[in-house]
Design a binder for these strands. Sequence first.
DNA 1: TCTGGGGTCCTAGGACCC
DNA 2: TCTGGGGTCCTAGGACCC
Length: 423
Amino acid sequence: MADPVFALIDCNSFYASCERVFRPDLARTPIVVLSNNDGCVIARSADAKPFVKMGAPYHQVHEVLRQHGILAFSSNYSLYGDISERVMTVIESLVPGLEVYSIDEAFADMNGIQDRDQLGRQIRATVLKTTGIPTCVGIAQTKTLAKLANHAAKRWQKHYGGVMDICDPERRDKVLKAVKVNEVWGVGRRMNEHLTNMGIKTAWDLAQADAWTLRQKFSIVVEKTARELRGVSCLALEEAAAAKQEICSSRSFGHRLKDIEPIREAVATYASRACEKLRAQGSLCKKVRVAIRTGMFNPTEAKFAKGIVCELPYPTDDTRLIIRAALQGLEAVFREGHAYAKAEVMLLDLRQQGEFTDDLFAETQPVAAEKVMSVLDSINNRWGRGTMRPARVPVTPEWGMKQELKSPNYTTRWDQLWTARCK
DNA sequence: TCTGGGGTCCTAGGACCC
DNA sequence: TCTGGGGTCCTAGGACCC
Protein backbone atom coordinates (compact mmCIF):
# COMPACT_ATOMS: atom_id res chain seq x y z
CA MET A 1 0.00 0.00 0.00
CA ALA A 2 1.21 3.46 -0.83
CA ASP A 3 2.16 5.80 1.99
CA PRO A 4 -0.78 7.95 3.05
CA VAL A 5 -0.99 11.65 2.27
CA PHE A 6 -3.10 14.06 4.29
CA ALA A 7 -4.27 17.61 3.73
CA LEU A 8 -5.32 19.85 6.58
CA ILE A 9 -7.76 22.54 5.51
CA ASP A 10 -8.13 25.25 8.12
CA CYS A 11 -10.35 28.33 7.90
CA ASN A 12 -8.56 31.62 8.48
CA SER A 13 -9.77 33.47 11.60
CA PHE A 14 -12.97 31.47 11.23
CA TYR A 15 -15.38 33.29 13.57
CA ALA A 16 -14.19 36.69 12.42
CA SER A 17 -14.48 35.59 8.79
CA CYS A 18 -18.07 34.40 9.41
CA GLU A 19 -19.00 37.81 10.79
CA ARG A 20 -17.63 39.39 7.62
CA VAL A 21 -19.56 37.14 5.21
CA PHE A 22 -22.76 39.09 5.74
CA ARG A 23 -21.03 42.39 6.44
CA PRO A 24 -18.90 43.14 3.37
CA ASP A 25 -18.69 46.70 4.65
CA LEU A 26 -16.37 45.35 7.37
CA ALA A 27 -13.81 43.88 4.97
CA ARG A 28 -11.26 46.48 6.09
CA THR A 29 -12.42 46.88 9.68
CA PRO A 30 -10.48 44.80 12.22
CA ILE A 31 -12.76 42.44 14.18
CA VAL A 32 -12.64 40.35 17.34
CA VAL A 33 -15.17 37.79 18.55
CA LEU A 34 -15.84 37.31 22.26
CA SER A 35 -16.51 34.15 24.26
CA ASN A 36 -19.89 33.45 25.84
CA ASN A 37 -20.95 36.16 28.28
CA ASP A 38 -18.70 38.54 26.34
CA GLY A 39 -15.92 37.29 28.61
CA CYS A 40 -12.73 37.24 26.59
CA VAL A 41 -11.39 37.45 23.04
CA ILE A 42 -11.52 34.07 21.26
CA ALA A 43 -11.00 35.06 17.62
CA ARG A 44 -9.31 37.94 15.82
CA SER A 45 -9.20 38.95 12.20
CA ALA A 46 -5.66 39.20 10.79
CA ASP A 47 -5.68 42.99 11.01
CA ALA A 48 -6.72 42.87 14.69
CA LYS A 49 -4.07 40.34 15.77
CA PRO A 50 -1.22 42.83 16.33
CA PHE A 51 -3.28 44.76 18.88
CA VAL A 52 -5.12 42.15 20.98
CA LYS A 53 -3.93 38.94 22.59
CA MET A 54 -5.91 35.73 22.24
CA GLY A 55 -7.88 35.09 25.42
CA ALA A 56 -7.58 38.64 26.73
CA PRO A 57 -10.48 39.59 29.03
CA TYR A 58 -12.79 41.95 27.14
CA HIS A 59 -13.07 44.44 29.98
CA GLN A 60 -9.28 44.80 30.00
CA VAL A 61 -8.86 45.45 26.29
CA HIS A 62 -11.98 47.53 25.80
CA GLU A 63 -10.02 50.74 25.52
CA VAL A 64 -7.36 49.31 23.15
CA LEU A 65 -10.12 48.09 20.82
CA ARG A 66 -11.66 51.54 20.78
CA GLN A 67 -8.34 53.23 20.04
CA HIS A 68 -7.65 51.05 17.01
CA GLY A 69 -11.20 51.04 15.71
CA ILE A 70 -11.54 47.28 16.30
CA LEU A 71 -15.14 46.05 16.32
CA ALA A 72 -16.18 43.38 18.85
CA PHE A 73 -18.91 40.77 18.35
CA SER A 74 -20.54 38.40 20.83
CA SER A 75 -20.15 34.83 19.64
CA ASN A 76 -22.92 33.64 17.34
CA TYR A 77 -22.61 29.87 17.32
CA SER A 78 -25.68 29.17 15.22
CA LEU A 79 -24.13 31.26 12.45
CA TYR A 80 -20.65 29.69 12.76
CA GLY A 81 -22.07 26.16 12.97
CA ASP A 82 -24.19 26.66 9.87
CA ILE A 83 -21.36 28.16 7.80
CA SER A 84 -19.04 25.39 9.00
CA GLU A 85 -21.45 22.76 7.65
CA ARG A 86 -21.46 24.48 4.28
CA VAL A 87 -17.66 24.66 4.16
CA MET A 88 -17.31 20.96 5.04
CA THR A 89 -19.89 19.92 2.44
CA VAL A 90 -17.99 21.79 -0.28
CA ILE A 91 -14.62 20.26 0.68
CA GLU A 92 -16.16 16.79 0.91
CA SER A 93 -17.29 17.04 -2.71
CA LEU A 94 -13.68 17.61 -3.85
CA VAL A 95 -11.67 14.95 -1.98
CA PRO A 96 -11.74 11.13 -1.68
CA GLY A 97 -12.32 11.20 2.11
CA LEU A 98 -12.77 13.78 4.87
CA GLU A 99 -12.48 13.87 8.65
CA VAL A 100 -14.15 16.94 10.11
CA TYR A 101 -11.80 17.67 12.99
CA SER A 102 -13.34 20.80 14.46
CA ILE A 103 -15.72 23.60 13.59
CA ASP A 104 -13.09 25.22 11.37
CA GLU A 105 -10.73 22.48 10.18
CA ALA A 106 -10.75 19.13 8.44
CA PHE A 107 -8.27 16.45 7.41
CA ALA A 108 -8.64 15.20 3.85
CA ASP A 109 -7.40 11.98 2.30
CA MET A 110 -5.05 12.92 -0.56
CA ASN A 111 -4.09 9.36 -1.49
CA GLY A 112 -3.51 8.89 -5.18
CA ILE A 113 -3.97 12.56 -6.08
CA GLN A 114 -1.57 13.43 -8.88
CA ASP A 115 -1.40 17.20 -8.63
CA ARG A 116 -1.87 17.86 -4.94
CA ASP A 117 -0.93 21.50 -5.11
CA GLN A 118 -3.53 22.09 -7.79
CA LEU A 119 -6.25 20.35 -5.73
CA GLY A 120 -5.27 22.42 -2.71
CA ARG A 121 -5.71 25.60 -4.70
CA GLN A 122 -9.04 24.36 -6.07
CA ILE A 123 -10.31 23.68 -2.53
CA ARG A 124 -9.37 27.18 -1.40
CA ALA A 125 -10.95 28.84 -4.42
CA THR A 126 -14.19 26.82 -4.29
CA VAL A 127 -14.73 27.29 -0.55
CA LEU A 128 -14.09 31.01 -0.87
CA LYS A 129 -16.42 31.39 -3.82
CA THR A 130 -19.32 29.36 -2.41
CA THR A 131 -19.17 30.33 1.27
CA GLY A 132 -17.05 33.47 1.49
CA ILE A 133 -14.61 31.83 3.92
CA PRO A 134 -10.84 32.03 3.29
CA THR A 135 -8.79 28.91 4.09
CA CYS A 136 -5.23 27.59 4.02
CA VAL A 137 -4.17 24.08 3.04
CA GLY A 138 -1.23 22.05 4.38
CA ILE A 139 -0.23 18.76 2.75
CA ALA A 140 2.08 16.04 4.09
CA GLN A 141 2.50 12.32 4.87
CA THR A 142 1.20 12.51 8.44
CA LYS A 143 -1.50 14.47 10.23
CA THR A 144 1.03 16.19 12.49
CA LEU A 145 3.11 17.25 9.47
CA ALA A 146 -0.03 18.39 7.62
CA LYS A 147 -0.84 20.59 10.62
CA LEU A 148 2.67 21.96 10.50
CA ALA A 149 2.41 22.55 6.75
CA ASN A 150 -0.84 24.41 7.33
CA HIS A 151 0.83 26.54 9.96
CA ALA A 152 3.56 27.36 7.43
CA ALA A 153 0.99 28.03 4.68
CA LYS A 154 -0.65 30.61 6.95
CA ARG A 155 2.61 32.18 8.08
CA TRP A 156 3.98 32.55 4.56
CA GLN A 157 0.59 32.91 2.90
CA LYS A 158 1.64 35.79 0.67
CA HIS A 159 4.60 33.81 -0.63
CA TYR A 160 2.98 30.43 -1.22
CA GLY A 161 -0.63 31.38 -1.95
CA GLY A 162 -2.09 29.57 1.07
CA VAL A 163 -1.14 26.04 -0.02
CA MET A 164 1.96 24.26 1.32
CA ASP A 165 2.94 20.73 0.31
CA ILE A 166 5.84 19.33 2.33
CA CYS A 167 5.84 15.75 1.05
CA ASP A 168 9.27 16.45 -0.39
CA PRO A 169 11.80 15.64 2.41
CA GLU A 170 13.95 18.65 1.67
CA ARG A 171 11.04 21.08 1.97
CA ARG A 172 9.76 19.23 5.02
CA ASP A 173 13.07 19.58 6.85
CA LYS A 174 13.26 23.26 5.99
CA VAL A 175 9.85 23.86 7.57
CA LEU A 176 10.66 21.66 10.60
CA LYS A 177 13.75 23.77 11.27
CA ALA A 178 11.86 27.04 10.92
CA VAL A 179 9.03 26.19 13.35
CA LYS A 180 9.36 26.37 17.15
CA VAL A 181 8.47 23.22 19.07
CA ASN A 182 5.55 24.89 20.87
CA GLU A 183 3.82 25.34 17.51
CA VAL A 184 3.70 21.57 17.02
CA TRP A 185 0.28 19.91 17.33
CA GLY A 186 0.20 18.11 20.69
CA VAL A 187 2.84 20.25 22.39
CA GLY A 188 1.17 22.53 24.92
CA ARG A 189 2.55 24.92 27.50
CA ARG A 190 3.80 22.31 29.99
CA MET A 191 5.36 20.04 27.40
CA ASN A 192 7.06 23.03 25.80
CA GLU A 193 8.74 23.81 29.14
CA HIS A 194 9.99 20.25 29.53
CA LEU A 195 11.24 19.99 25.98
CA THR A 196 12.94 23.39 26.03
CA ASN A 197 14.78 22.33 29.21
CA MET A 198 16.03 19.27 27.34
CA GLY A 199 17.34 21.49 24.57
CA ILE A 200 14.53 20.61 22.17
CA LYS A 201 13.60 23.98 20.73
CA THR A 202 12.34 23.45 17.18
CA ALA A 203 10.05 20.95 15.49
CA TRP A 204 13.20 19.58 13.87
CA ASP A 205 14.80 18.93 17.29
CA LEU A 206 11.70 16.98 18.38
CA ALA A 207 11.74 14.94 15.19
CA GLN A 208 15.37 13.98 15.89
CA ALA A 209 14.80 13.13 19.57
CA ASP A 210 14.92 9.49 20.67
CA ALA A 211 11.38 8.09 20.61
CA TRP A 212 11.97 5.59 23.42
CA THR A 213 13.32 8.28 25.73
CA LEU A 214 10.31 10.47 25.01
CA ARG A 215 7.96 7.62 25.82
CA GLN A 216 9.68 6.84 29.12
CA LYS A 217 10.06 10.43 30.20
CA PHE A 218 6.59 11.60 29.14
CA SER A 219 4.04 9.38 27.41
CA ILE A 220 3.16 7.52 24.29
CA VAL A 221 1.42 10.66 23.02
CA VAL A 222 4.68 12.61 22.75
CA GLU A 223 6.41 9.62 21.21
CA LYS A 224 3.80 9.45 18.47
CA THR A 225 4.14 13.18 17.84
CA ALA A 226 7.89 12.78 17.30
CA ARG A 227 7.41 9.80 14.99
CA GLU A 228 4.80 11.67 12.98
CA LEU A 229 7.21 14.58 12.56
CA ARG A 230 9.67 12.10 11.09
CA GLY A 231 7.08 11.09 8.51
CA VAL A 232 5.85 7.87 10.14
CA SER A 233 2.06 7.99 10.17
CA CYS A 234 0.66 7.02 13.59
CA LEU A 235 -2.74 8.75 13.40
CA ALA A 236 -5.26 7.55 10.82
CA LEU A 237 -8.01 9.49 9.08
CA GLU A 238 -11.24 8.96 11.01
CA GLU A 239 -14.14 9.67 8.71
CA ALA A 240 -16.97 8.41 10.93
CA ALA A 241 -17.32 10.50 14.06
CA ALA A 242 -17.35 8.19 17.08
CA ALA A 243 -20.15 8.61 19.62
CA LYS A 244 -19.13 10.88 22.49
CA GLN A 245 -18.27 9.16 25.76
CA GLU A 246 -19.42 12.05 27.86
CA ILE A 247 -21.70 14.98 27.14
CA CYS A 248 -21.49 18.26 28.93
CA SER A 249 -23.54 21.43 29.04
CA SER A 250 -22.16 24.21 31.19
CA ARG A 251 -22.34 27.96 31.13
CA SER A 252 -21.52 30.96 33.25
CA PHE A 253 -24.52 33.01 34.35
CA GLY A 254 -25.03 36.58 33.12
CA HIS A 255 -24.46 37.68 36.71
CA ARG A 256 -23.80 36.04 40.10
CA LEU A 257 -26.69 34.04 41.63
CA LYS A 258 -27.20 33.67 45.39
CA ASP A 259 -30.58 31.93 45.57
CA ILE A 260 -31.12 28.35 44.60
CA GLU A 261 -34.27 28.93 42.55
CA PRO A 262 -32.66 30.53 39.46
CA ILE A 263 -29.87 27.97 39.67
CA ARG A 264 -32.55 25.27 39.51
CA GLU A 265 -33.75 26.85 36.27
CA ALA A 266 -30.21 26.88 34.89
CA VAL A 267 -29.53 23.27 35.85
CA ALA A 268 -32.82 22.17 34.24
CA THR A 269 -31.93 24.15 31.11
CA TYR A 270 -28.42 22.65 30.82
CA ALA A 271 -29.73 19.14 31.55
CA SER A 272 -32.35 19.55 28.86
CA ARG A 273 -29.72 20.70 26.33
CA ALA A 274 -27.39 17.82 27.25
CA CYS A 275 -30.26 15.36 26.72
CA GLU A 276 -30.84 16.73 23.22
CA LYS A 277 -27.19 16.02 22.38
CA LEU A 278 -27.49 12.60 23.99
CA ARG A 279 -30.48 11.61 21.86
CA ALA A 280 -28.92 13.10 18.73
CA GLN A 281 -26.18 10.47 18.93
CA GLY A 282 -28.61 7.74 19.97
CA SER A 283 -27.09 7.11 23.39
CA LEU A 284 -28.47 6.48 26.86
CA CYS A 285 -26.82 7.58 30.08
CA LYS A 286 -26.61 5.97 33.49
CA LYS A 287 -25.01 8.80 35.49
CA VAL A 288 -25.50 12.55 35.76
CA ARG A 289 -22.96 14.89 37.27
CA VAL A 290 -24.02 18.32 38.55
CA ALA A 291 -21.53 20.95 39.67
CA ILE A 292 -21.75 24.57 40.71
CA ARG A 293 -19.08 27.11 41.47
CA THR A 294 -18.44 30.70 42.39
CA GLY A 295 -16.20 33.00 40.35
CA MET A 296 -12.63 31.68 40.32
CA PHE A 297 -10.66 34.72 39.15
CA ASN A 298 -11.61 37.61 41.37
CA PRO A 299 -9.35 37.37 44.45
CA THR A 300 -11.85 39.27 46.63
CA GLU A 301 -14.60 36.71 46.00
CA ALA A 302 -14.89 33.72 48.36
CA LYS A 303 -14.30 30.55 46.32
CA PHE A 304 -16.50 27.49 46.45
CA ALA A 305 -16.98 24.60 44.04
CA LYS A 306 -18.77 21.32 44.45
CA GLY A 307 -20.04 18.56 42.23
CA ILE A 308 -21.83 15.27 42.65
CA VAL A 309 -22.51 12.25 40.48
CA CYS A 310 -26.04 10.83 40.62
CA GLU A 311 -26.81 7.34 39.43
CA LEU A 312 -30.02 6.81 37.46
CA PRO A 313 -32.23 3.76 38.01
CA TYR A 314 -31.63 2.55 34.44
CA PRO A 315 -29.86 3.87 31.31
CA THR A 316 -32.11 6.57 29.90
CA ASP A 317 -32.41 9.53 27.53
CA ASP A 318 -35.60 10.84 29.15
CA THR A 319 -35.18 14.58 29.79
CA ARG A 320 -37.72 14.47 32.63
CA LEU A 321 -35.86 11.79 34.54
CA ILE A 322 -32.47 13.38 33.97
CA ILE A 323 -33.67 16.84 35.04
CA ARG A 324 -35.12 15.32 38.20
CA ALA A 325 -31.83 13.61 39.02
CA ALA A 326 -29.84 16.76 38.25
CA LEU A 327 -32.05 18.87 40.52
CA GLN A 328 -31.66 16.38 43.36
CA GLY A 329 -27.91 16.62 42.87
CA LEU A 330 -28.12 20.40 42.99
CA GLU A 331 -29.90 20.26 46.37
CA ALA A 332 -27.02 18.13 47.66
CA VAL A 333 -24.21 20.45 46.59
CA PHE A 334 -25.84 23.85 47.11
CA ARG A 335 -24.59 25.87 50.08
CA GLU A 336 -26.28 29.04 51.21
CA GLY A 337 -24.24 32.23 51.25
CA HIS A 338 -22.17 31.97 48.07
CA ALA A 339 -22.38 34.05 44.88
CA TYR A 340 -22.52 31.40 42.17
CA ALA A 341 -21.09 32.09 38.72
CA LYS A 342 -21.54 28.84 36.84
CA ALA A 343 -23.33 25.49 36.77
CA GLU A 344 -22.48 22.35 34.82
CA VAL A 345 -24.43 19.24 33.88
CA MET A 346 -22.50 16.27 32.56
CA LEU A 347 -23.93 12.99 31.27
CA LEU A 348 -21.62 10.05 32.02
CA ASP A 349 -21.51 6.31 31.61
CA LEU A 350 -23.02 6.53 28.13
CA ARG A 351 -23.97 3.51 26.11
CA GLN A 352 -25.49 2.98 22.72
CA GLN A 353 -29.19 2.17 22.61
CA GLY A 354 -29.86 -1.56 22.34
CA GLU A 355 -26.31 -2.38 23.39
CA PHE A 356 -25.97 -5.69 25.18
CA THR A 357 -26.20 -5.35 28.95
CA ASP A 358 -24.82 -8.11 31.11
CA ASP A 359 -27.82 -8.21 33.40
CA LEU A 360 -30.76 -9.78 31.65
CA PHE A 361 -33.17 -8.65 34.34
CA ALA A 362 -31.93 -5.07 34.63
CA GLU A 363 -34.64 -2.47 34.35
CA THR A 364 -34.77 -0.63 31.03
CA GLN A 365 -36.33 2.60 29.87
CA PRO A 366 -40.11 2.33 29.29
CA VAL A 367 -41.16 2.47 25.64
CA ALA A 368 -43.55 5.34 26.41
CA ALA A 369 -40.60 7.56 27.38
CA GLU A 370 -38.91 6.93 24.03
CA LYS A 371 -42.06 8.01 22.21
CA VAL A 372 -42.46 11.20 24.24
CA MET A 373 -38.83 12.16 23.63
CA SER A 374 -39.00 11.49 19.92
CA VAL A 375 -42.08 13.72 19.59
CA LEU A 376 -40.31 16.43 21.58
CA ASP A 377 -37.25 16.26 19.31
CA SER A 378 -39.18 16.26 16.05
CA ILE A 379 -41.20 19.31 17.08
CA ASN A 380 -38.05 21.19 18.07
CA ASN A 381 -36.19 20.14 14.93
CA ARG A 382 -38.99 21.41 12.79
CA TRP A 383 -39.89 24.62 14.62
CA GLY A 384 -36.65 25.52 16.34
CA ARG A 385 -34.97 24.72 19.63
CA GLY A 386 -37.10 25.46 22.68
CA THR A 387 -40.47 25.39 20.90
CA MET A 388 -41.49 22.59 23.25
CA ARG A 389 -39.63 22.36 26.56
CA PRO A 390 -39.90 21.24 30.15
CA ALA A 391 -41.73 23.75 32.39
CA ARG A 392 -38.55 24.13 34.46
CA VAL A 393 -36.78 25.70 31.48
CA PRO A 394 -37.51 29.43 31.09
CA VAL A 395 -37.65 31.08 27.63
CA THR A 396 -35.69 34.19 28.44
CA PRO A 397 -34.00 33.52 31.75
CA GLU A 398 -33.12 36.44 33.95
CA TRP A 399 -29.70 34.80 34.60
CA GLY A 400 -29.00 34.21 30.89
CA MET A 401 -25.66 35.05 29.37
CA LYS A 402 -24.54 38.47 28.36
CA GLN A 403 -24.47 38.89 24.57
CA GLU A 404 -24.66 42.57 23.94
CA LEU A 405 -22.82 42.61 20.62
CA LYS A 406 -24.38 39.70 18.76
CA SER A 407 -24.91 39.74 15.01
CA PRO A 408 -28.18 38.41 13.52
CA ASN A 409 -28.68 34.70 12.78
CA TYR A 410 -28.47 35.43 9.06
CA THR A 411 -28.81 31.83 7.93
CA THR A 412 -30.88 30.03 10.56
CA ARG A 413 -33.79 32.33 11.47
CA TRP A 414 -36.47 33.47 9.06
CA ASP A 415 -36.98 36.72 10.93
CA GLN A 416 -33.27 37.56 10.75
CA LEU A 417 -32.57 36.93 7.08
CA TRP A 418 -30.65 39.46 5.11
CA THR A 419 -32.78 41.86 3.14
CA ALA A 420 -31.65 43.13 -0.25
CA ARG A 421 -33.07 46.08 -2.05
CA CYS A 422 -33.11 46.44 -5.85
CA LYS A 423 -32.56 49.86 -7.28
C1' DT B 1 -18.74 44.88 37.63
C1' DC B 2 -15.55 42.04 34.62
C1' DT B 3 -11.65 36.02 32.58
C1' DG B 4 -15.65 30.39 27.54
C1' DG B 5 -17.31 25.82 26.67
C1' DG B 6 -16.84 21.16 25.21
C1' DG B 7 -14.18 17.46 24.52
C1' DT B 8 -10.20 13.41 24.43
C1' DC B 9 -6.49 10.50 26.00
C1' DC B 10 -3.13 8.85 29.31
C1' DT B 11 -1.32 7.69 33.85
C1' DA B 12 -1.06 6.77 38.66
C1' DG B 13 -2.95 4.97 42.56
C1' DG B 14 -6.44 2.69 45.39
C1' DA B 15 -9.75 -1.08 46.03
C1' DC B 16 -10.57 -5.54 45.44
C1' DC B 17 -10.01 -10.34 44.01
C1' DC B 18 -7.79 -14.88 43.80
C1' DT C 1 14.69 -9.74 60.92
C1' DC C 2 11.23 -7.62 57.66
C1' DT C 3 5.31 -8.02 55.15
C1' DG C 4 3.28 -12.45 47.99
C1' DG C 5 2.21 -11.46 43.42
C1' DG C 6 -0.52 -10.53 39.69
C1' DG C 7 -4.53 -8.92 37.61
C1' DT C 8 -8.70 -5.85 36.81
C1' DC C 9 -11.54 -1.99 37.41
C1' DC C 10 -12.48 2.59 38.72
C1' DT C 11 -11.44 7.37 39.64
C1' DA C 12 -8.99 11.62 39.80
C1' DG C 13 -6.03 14.56 37.77
C1' DG C 14 -2.97 16.28 34.22
C1' DA C 15 -2.21 17.73 29.63
C1' DC C 16 -3.81 18.92 25.40
C1' DC C 17 -6.99 20.50 21.53
C1' DC C 18 -10.16 23.89 19.21
